[in-house]
């Protein structure tokens, strides 16, 4: 018995054991209709609590220094700054209609799409002062930057257009038709890819001229695009088809199609190779194993939308906030 106690006490003091006990990781899933952010223990894949927002959050982004997770609350007209390790609310900053938001690669700018107000706002990331407001023809939805942070590309969902804004001169560069209902935008290999939710393809666009170079079929209602951490695989969520497609990022040739019903939307990549996908109309997050094609589900709020994984974060404490 004494030996057993000694063995157990030794186990509890070993660094590896301690690390395993705490290294669950923390995930954040926005519930747009439920005005909350679900906090999920990545190890157990269970929702452990909800952080109330004000009105209608949609998307979230990690700050360049990794210290804050910014949650845009559109009708609440504010950005909520969370601690990405704990979910603690650190700050609330008034910002008009923050729908989709992203920091430029150089960390200098924060671009905020005001979807309902038809405006693209560029903020100084350090001070959160509005630098420039670009009025647009319709509903700016998704955005992506050129790697040198000189251009931001914004899809205008209720039109057929993609807009480009020069961040060096703070002037519009071009606005061109690219498809029926442009949604997700991604810079890849010197081109801009735009998912077209009104069709079954993504458009490959020349970033200089805005000219559509080719269409690549993905599935009905191509909605959002993601690049795997090793930059080898392009993932596309097809909203109407209820599928997720993996493609060779170099050739844009499809590799495999996975059935993810319930409106696949946002995506993030876990270190164990699994892919987390919000299912917008199913109250669930899918955790897809790309090797087997099967997925597990995590129950969350009414309208799971933006998603962020912090695998290095500690497992979240179970605290009921409502």
């Amino acid at each position: 018995m004494r030996r057993l106690c000694l063995l157990l006490s030794l186990c509890f003091t070993l660094p590896g054991f301690t690390a395993r006990a705490n290294a669950g990781g923390i995930a954040f899933v926005i519930d747009s209709a439920g005005a909350a952010v679900s906090v999920i223990d990545m190890a157990t894949q269970k929702e452990v609590r909800r952080i109330p927002t004000l009105r209608e959050p949609h998307h979230l982004i990690l700050s360049p220094d990794g210290r804050s997770l910014l949650v845009g609350d559109t009708t609440g007209n504010q950005i909520m700054f969370l601690d990405p390790n704990t979910g603690e609310v650190k700050q609330r900053v008034p910002v008009t209609d923050p729908y989709q938001l992203a920091f430029s690669p150089n960390g200098k700018f924060l671009t905020v799409n005001g979807l309902a107000r038809n405006q693209v706002d560029v903020y100084d990331a350090a001070t959160m002062k509005l630098v420039k407001r670009f009025p647009v023809v319709a509903t700016p939805s998704h955005l992506a930057y050129s790697p040198d942070s000189s251009i931001v590309f914004v899809s205008l969902q209720d039109s057929d257009k993609l807009a480009a804004f020069d961040l060096r001169t703070m002037t519009p560069k071009w606005t061109v038709p690219v498809g029926k209902t442009p949604a997700g935008v991604l810079w890849l290999n010197g081109k801009v890819l735009v998912a077209d939710m009104g069709t079954d393809y993504i458009a490959v666009v020349d970033p200089e001229t805005g000219k559509v170079l080719e269409h690549v079929e993905t599935g009905k209602g191509a909605h959002n695009l993601f690049l795997s951490p090793d930059r080898k695989i392009l993932w596309v969520n097809n909203r109407a088809g209820g599928t997720t497609v993996s493609m060779d990022a170099a050739t844009l040739k499809p590799i495999r199609t996975y059935a993810i019903p319930g409106g696949p939307d946002d995506m993030d990549f876990a270190p164990n190779g699994k892919i987390w996908i919000t299912r917008r109309w199913a109250e669930k997050v899918a955790v897809l194993d790309p090797a087997t094609g099967t997925f597990e589900t995590i129950e969350v709020g009414r309208s799971p939308h933006g998603l962020f994984l912090n695998p290095k974060g500690p497992a979240p404490a179970v605290v009921s906030s409502r």
Partner: peptide
């Protein structure tokens, strides 16, 4: 969600109204 996936989205997609 079921209505959306099985009735509304197919109709919106068919008529070019996915926005």
């Amino acid at each position: 969600g079921w209505l959306q996936e099985n009735l509304l989205i197919p109709a919106l997609y068919q008529f070019g109204l996915m926005n």
